[in-house]
């Protein structure tokens, strides 16, 4: 029987932990940026954000747009490029404990994605709904659109793509095959950008009103429904986590029949030994 001590050094055992500190750091950064952006929007949207042709609008809003788009593109490309560059080229020799840790990292990334999804799809989107009902706009680049379409959606896309590329480059089952649910969850946010183009073209051409439930907006709904495939992705992730969280040194069938009190409990870095059989 193999013990932990006999494992190859490259696969040295460490109990898997979710990357809580890094995750909270990323979340704190994201929440700070969203909050600061929202305060800026709240302060300037109705003062210098009403007339596209004014100098103030160009200064306070268009400048922000011209800065944020390349910054977000560079940041997204940089993170994805780094994940690809540092990909695991020996996935066939990946230790189960390390694989489990990477699943926790993936779940952490998906949780960040979930929070971005909420912020972008709810408060940021409905700021636009409220804005349209008290203004008559003269541009596609309104203060709420600049935050929603050219900041929120790109961040949303980046969050989805980062998690997808991480899974493709570090987790064997996602590297060998393509997860259709995961692909759909990523494709939805990505395809929102072309739909933004259609939406704005339609509003400048044949549908001036901004009723939120209007048919011109239903393309966004359809793309939002891509996230319904998150259930399939969750099943794929949980199925593998269940396999990886089986305890070494135990018989899976008998253990399942015994319940948790019948399991051996060992400390980390101790050799795992088979327990003697015990009659009921």
């Amino acid at each position: 029987m193999n013990t932990i001590d006999t494992l190859p050094s490259s696969n040295a055992y460490a109990a898997p932990r979710a990357p809580w500190a890094r995750m909270f750091l990323v979340l704190s950064g994201l929440l700070s940026v969203y909050t600061a952006y929202r305060i800026y929007q709240h302060t300037t949207a109705f003062t210098v954000g009403l007339d596209y042709f004014s100098e103030d609008f160009q200064k306070y809003w268009m400048t922000l747009l011209y800065i944020q788009l390349p910054v977000l593109f560079a940041l997204g490309a940089g993170i994805v490029g780094w994940i690809w560059h540092t990909r695991d080229r020996n996935l066939d020799r990946l230790a189960p404990a390390e694989e489990l840790r990477r699943y926790f990292v993936l779940l952490g990334q998906l949780m960040v994605f979930g929070i971005i999804a909420y912020l972008t799809a709810s408060p940021v989107t409905e700021a636009d709904a409220a804005w349209h009902q008290v203004t008559v706009r003269d541009t596609d680049f309104t203060p709420t659109h600049i935050m929603l379409f050219y900041f929120g959606i790109p961040v949303f896309i980046t969050g989805a793509v980062v998690a997808f590329v991480y899974a493709r480059t570090r987790l064997p089952q996602f590297a060998k095959r393509l997860s259709l649910p995961f692909a759909l969850v990523v494709a939805g946010p990505v395809m929102i950008m072309p739909n933004v183009g259609f939406n704005e073209w339609g509003h400048t051409f044949f549908y001036a009103e901004e009723l939120f439930a209007a048919p011109i907006h239903w393309g966004f709904v359809l793309l939002g429904w891509a996230t319904f495939a998150a259930g399939g992705l969750l099943v794929q992730i949980l199925s593998r986590i269940v396999e990886l969280t089986k305890v070494a040194g135990s018989h899976p069938v008998i253990e399942a029949m015994q319940g948790p009190e019948g399991k051996q409990v060992t400390r980390r870095n101790e050799s795992v030994k088979a327990e003697p059989a015990v009659a009921a």
Binding site: I4, R17, A18, L110, E243, L244, T245, K263
Partner: peptide, 27 residues
């Protein structure tokens, strides 16, 4: 009969419990 540490991710029921809690806290 036995699952080896090279085949599974965890070495004890306590670690298994911690892993489940972490998965719950994320999911």
């Amino acid at each position: 009969t036995e699952l080896r540490a090279t085949e599974v991710g965890l070495t004890s029921a306590a670690e298994q419990h911690r892993a489940y809690v972490q998965a719950d806290l994320l999911i």
